[in-house]
Amino acid sequence: MVVGTPLQQRKNNMSQTTLKSLNGHDRAFEPIIVADIGGTNARFAVVTEFNLETNQFVIDHQFTFPSAEFQSFESALSAFLAKLTIKKPSRACFAVAGPIKGQQVYLTNLGWNFNTQDVKSDFGFSELAVINDFAAFAFAAPHLSKEDNIQVKTGQADPNANIAVLGPGTGFGAACHVKDIHGSAVMSCEAGHISLAAVTELDRQLLQVLKESTQHVSVETVFSGPGLARLYKAMAQVKGVPAEDLNAAQISARANECDVCDATLNQFCDWIGSVAGDIALTFGALGGVFIGGGILPRMTERLISSRFVERFTEKGIMSQYAGQIPVTLVVQDNIPLIGAAACLHDRDQFS
Rank of each mutant, 00 (worst) to 15 (best):
G155M: 06
V34T: 10
T48C: 06
A136I: 08
L303A: 05
N160H: 08
A255D: 09
F70K: 04
Q215A: 14
I338K: 02
L286I: 00
A28W: 07
G240F: 10
G293K: 03
L228P: 03
P297D: 08
D133N: 09
L210F: 12
E49R: 04
Q215F: 12
H177K: 05
F283M: 10
V119K: 00
A174H: 09
S305Q: 15
T170W: 14
V165N: 08
Q9N: 15
N113Q: 10
E147S: 15
S78K: 07
A95K: 05
V3F: 15
M299K: 08
Q156M: 03
Q9Y: 09
F268D: 05
L210C: 11
Q215M: 11
V186E: 09
L81T: 02
D245H: 06
Q215K: 15
E220V: 13
P142G: 02
T300G: 13
A253I: 12
E220R: 10
N13Y: 10
L202P: 02
V327Y: 06
K146M: 13
E49H: 11
F290Y: 13
E244D: 11
A138I: 05
E53R: 10
L265A: 11
L337Y: 07
S218I: 05
I251E: 06
R298T: 13
T54S: 12
G225D: 09
N113V: 00
L281V: 06
F50H: 10
H143Y: 10
F350Q: 12
V327T: 09
F137T: 02
A249N: 08
V105Y: 01
E212F: 12
A276H: 05
Q56H: 06
A157V: 03
V46I: 15
E147Y: 07
P159V: 09
Q208G: 11
W271H: 14
G155P: 04
F223W: 04
N160C: 02
N247E: 03
F312V: 00
T48F: 02
D36W: 04
G293D: 05
A141N: 03
F123K: 11
Q117P: 04
D346Q: 14
Q332G: 04
S252H: 02
L22Y: 10
A175T: 14
P159E: 06
I194H: 14
G155C: 02
L246R: 14
Q215N: 15
G227T: 09
F350A: 01
G38D: 00
